[in-house]
Simulated scan of single mutants.
Amino acid sequence: MKLYAISDLHLAVPANRLALAALPYYLEDWLIVAGDVGEAEDQLHYALSILTRRFAKVIWVPGNHDLWTLPGGNASKLQGDEKYRLLVNICRSYGVITPEDPYPLWPGSSKPTVLAPLFLLYDYSFRPDNVPEAQAVAWAEETDVVCTDEFILHPTPYPSRIAWCHARVAYTEKRLALIPSSHSIVLINHFPLRQEFVRLKRIPRFSLWCGTRKTEDWHTRFPISVVVYGHIHFRATDYRDGVRFEEVSLGYQRDWQQARGIEGYLREILPEPPG
């Protein structure tokens, strides 16, 4: 029995959609889907209709693309938290675990291990100390970098994405604090928890839309053994203070080799692979 993870399936990309349909069966294993399935609800339905038949259990967290409110067409016009709650309800209709559900225990380990899916967003704090918050987006624009979230990821009913992020962080901290210290936690989020893992050589100022400094010390504050995340499209395994950090994104067509199939990019989270 294994726990796998992948993120950033981006099913608006035809090659990604076809590759997902060809994914083999892992009927004894669980899968983490760490955000950015796609931009529309039909893409989430498509993914879950396949993945819930391929795996014994699926755990989902939202990415920023999942929360977009697209103009025109037949897409839902729900915004912000209402859009998020719609996605949660879609997941629940497939029996998929979300950040709003009780955290499950991983049955494949002798030590109690909690799988904790999160939804935290970002607050523009992944920036140099000399850049004021009020000038952060303008600072990114100096290098022609602006995230599409600024136009179609609405924070409704919160006054800003920063306020939404801080509310989600406070909510999550309370839940994590209830987990006994004798347990191990696998933390699952779309965005990285630490700024140092935002590896964006071509567009470094995109870091604004990649997380919050409020989570920098979570891997030591809570009994965390593994952190799973995506968003960066830079697959990596790192260790900090004895905690393993796994960036598990697939990405756009240019980011992966189609000959390997999506199965070639499933990251084994538990049990920890040798080496």
Results as ranks from 00 to 15, higher is better:
Ile6Asn: 02
Asp8His: 04
Leu11Ile: 05
Ala12Glu: 14
Ala12Gln: 13
Val13Trp: 05
Pro14Glu: 03
Ala15Gly: 07
Leu23Lys: 10
Leu23Ser: 13
Pro24Gly: 08
Glu28Pro: 00
Glu28Asn: 11
Asp29Gln: 07
Trp30Ala: 08
Ile32Leu: 06
Ala34Lys: 00
Glu39Ile: 11
Glu39Ser: 10
Gln43Phe: 03
His45Glu: 06
Tyr46Met: 00
Tyr46Gly: 05
Ala47His: 02
Leu48Val: 09
Leu48Gln: 03
Leu51Ala: 01
Arg53Ser: 05
Lys57Val: 11
Lys57Gly: 06
Ile59Asp: 00
Val61Met: 00
Asn64Trp: 02
His65Trp: 11
Asp66Cys: 09
Trp68Tyr: 14
Asn74His: 15
Ala75Gly: 11
Gln79Ser: 15
Asp81Thr: 10
Glu82Leu: 12
Arg85Leu: 14
Leu86His: 03
Cys91Arg: 05
Arg92Ile: 10
Tyr94Glu: 08
Tyr103Trp: 06
Pro104His: 02
Leu105Ala: 13
Trp106Asn: 03
Ser109Ile: 13
Leu115Asp: 08
Leu118Ala: 07
Leu120Met: 10
Tyr122Gln: 09
Ser125Thr: 15
Ser125Leu: 13
Arg127Met: 06
Asn130Trp: 10
Asn130Arg: 13
Ala134Met: 13
Val137Pro: 05
Glu141Val: 13
Glu142Trp: 12
Val145Thr: 13
Val145Ile: 13
Glu150Trp: 07
Phe151Ser: 14
Pro155Asn: 04
Pro157Asp: 03
Pro157Ser: 06
Tyr158Arg: 10
Tyr158Leu: 12
Tyr158Ala: 11
Arg161Thr: 12
Ala163Leu: 05
Ala170Lys: 09
Thr172Gly: 04
Glu173Cys: 14
Arg175Ala: 02
Leu176Cys: 04
Pro180Asn: 05
Ser184Arg: 09
Ser184Lys: 06
Val186Met: 05
Leu187Gly: 03
Arg194Phe: 01
Arg194Val: 12
Gln195Gly: 07
Val198Cys: 08
Arg199Phe: 10
Ile203Ala: 08
Arg205His: 07
Leu208Met: 09
Trp209Pro: 01
Arg213Thr: 15
Arg221Cys: 14
Pro223Tyr: 12
Tyr229Glu: 10
Phe234Arg: 15
Ala236Asp: 14
Thr237Met: 10
Asp238Gln: 11
Gly242Ile: 05
Gly242Leu: 04
Arg244Tyr: 02
Val248Phe: 00
Arg254Cys: 09
Asp255Arg: 03
Trp256Gln: 06
Gln257Asp: 14
Ala259Val: 10
Gly261Ala: 02
Ile262Val: 11
Gly264Asp: 01
Tyr265Phe: 08
Leu266Ser: 06
Arg267Trp: 11
Arg267Gly: 01
Leu270Cys: 07
Glu272Lys: 12
Glu272Gly: 07
